[in-house]
């Protein structure tokens, strides 16, 4: 209890920050595993090594969050097999097993990173000191991943726009449906298996956040990411309109 009173204003704040860190660590570990699997889909030796380097980057992010959690005595729960994270990992693996580099890039670097960058930024803005720095600097690094893969995906789109858009549409519904259910006002597919007790979504106001704004910002960043790749707005609006809400 001593650490708690030293670092947090209230038990509610302690609990919600514990859940935020638990989600972030779980997400980073998913990212790490995804990049490791991704390296298997790549022919080019340099790109292969780069994927492992990215996996290592995600490992370092997870370690950074874990170190802070340990220091401040947060109550962390890591679960890579919960009903959302587990399904996301399954979708990713289904493409990694087919050696589909482009699909893997789309899932990890665009869909998951859009949510990570946006949500880390929102969290970073309301937390203080070291926690703030941690979230904002990791958001910045994840953003670089997004930009890097946007280049690759943009040139892929140019090769055969119709096929590319058809493919991304399928992946969008497979992956974004899960993220959309996960981030909805109430969990649309049951408890996430990460948060303690009830979902932290209902307690975000203790740290000055709310799930509607966080989700809205994340979907907006995703829409912009699709724009940057060159997906017509006409398509992205249709895809997003058809997600569960």
């Amino acid at each position: 209890m001593e650490t708690l009173t030293n670092n947090f204003k209230s038990i509610e704040e302690f609990q919600v920050i514990s859940d935020v860190f638990s989600q972030a660590i779980t997400g980073e570990l998913i990212g790490m595993s995804n990049f490791a699997s991704l390296s298997g889909t790549i022919e080019d030796p340099f790109e292969k090594m780069e994927a492992i380097e990215h996996a290592n980057g995600e490992r370092q992010h997870a370690e950074g969050f874990m170190a802070y959690a340990k220091k401040t005595g947060l109550n962390i729960n890591i679960n890579l097999n919960g009903s959302y994270w587990g399904r996301i990992r399954d979708v990713f693996l289904s493409y990694a097993n087919k050696n589909d580099f482009i699909a893997c890039l789309m899932i990890q670097e665009v869909m998951l990173e859009a949510f990570a960058v946006s949500m880390y930024t929102d969290v970073g803005r309301v937390l203080e000191d070291e926690a703030q720095k941690l979230f904002l600097s990791i958001a910045e690094e994840e953003k670089e991943h997004m930009d890097h893969s946007t280049e690759i995906l943009r040139s892929e789109l140019k090769k055969n726009p119709d096929d590319f858009i058809r493919k991304i549409e399928i992946i969008h519904y497979e992956c974004m449906t899960i993220l959309s259910e996960f981030s909805a006002r109430t969990d649309l597919s049951g408890h996430c298996g990460v948060c303690h007790g009830d979902c932290m979504k209902n307690s975000l106001h203790h740290i000055g956040l709310d799930v509607v704004t966080m989700r809205g910002n994340a979907l907006a960043l995703y829409a912009e990411a699709l724009d940057n790749i060159g997906i017509p707005g006409e398509k992205s609006v249709l895809w997003i309109a058809n997600l569960p809400a």
Binding site: V212, R215, G216, G233, E234, V237, L243, A245
Partner: peptide, 24 residues
């Protein structure tokens, strides 16, 4: 085949949406 959304759920998403080209 999917349910229409109530206006509040549409606001939750499209109140944040960046500008988009919708049709030609």
């Amino acid at each position: 085949s999917i349910e229409p959304l109530p206006v509040d759920k549409i606001k939750d998403v499209f109140g944040f949406m960046p500008p988009r080209d919708l049709f030609k």
